[in-house]
Design a protein around this nucleic acid. Structure first.
Length: 194
DNA sequence: AGTTAGATCGGCT
DNA sequence: GCCGATCTAACTC
């Protein structure tokens, strides 16, 4: 049996969860198709303390899941054609979510390539908009419980030792002073090197 | 190798 | 209206 990460895993400080998610495996089920990838890059987004976060200005129809139960997805649309995948993770009564920025594809690679119409493995999932397309993730998966074995969940894969890199976040205007981006050092599938 | 336009949705200083 | 937690394709150098 698989060890699905429980709700308690996500019920901690958002930055801690972002770091802890590195090396874990995302499982995406599409009927009989099974897609998997190892998380190699994440970013933490907070609440009132974080001007870069959607939750900064309080609760809205779009961001309300960031204020809800940890261990659910927050999927949103941006720049006209891109979906971004987040996992809700925070301490009680504080909003927060972890943006999945890159994964290393491990299972179902041929399907992912087809969904993205690219042939290069390195460029398959090395960016937030790319991995959602490869895994066929869109707003239908918003608010999904990822602590249960369903269409999408995260399993605790073998602990391997790796060095964690830390940097400022990517592609934001405000909140550039925070070092809330985490990635596996030296991993080929990280979206960019700082 | 590096830069730029275009795509085109939803939530707001 | 406008701008964003982006990516691709199509250009130029």
């Amino acid at each position: 049996m698989e060890k699905v990460l429980p709700k308690e895993f996500y019920s901690r400080k958002t930055t801690i969860v972002a770091k802890e998610l590195l090396g874990k495996t995302i499982v995406r089920k599409l009927g009989d198709i099974r897609l998997e990838g190892k998380i190699v890059e994440t970013e933490a987004y907070g609440g009132k303390d974080d001007p870069a976060s959607h939750a900064y200005r309080g609760i809205t129809e779009r961001n309300k899941v960031m204020f809800g139960e940890p261990g659910h997805t927050y999927v949103y649309f941006t720049y006209g054609n891109h979906w971004c995948l987040n996992f809700v993770a925070h301490e009680p009564s504080k909003p927060g979510a972890v943006l999945i920025r890159a994964i290393e594809p491990t299972t179902g690679i041929e399907y992912m390539k087809k969904f993205r119409s690219v042939s290069s493995l390195e460029n398959l999932c090395n960016g937030p908009g790319k991995l959602t397309k490869a895994l066929k993730i869109d707003n239908k998966l918003n608010g999904l419980d990822i602590t249960k074995e369903g269409e999408l969940y995260v399993v605790n894969t073998e602990e391997k030792t790796f060095e964690i890199g830390v940097s400022t976040r990517v592609g934001i205007r405000r909140g550039r002073n925070k070092f809330w981006r985490f990635f596996i050092k030296g991993n080929l599938f990280v979206s960019r090197v700082n």
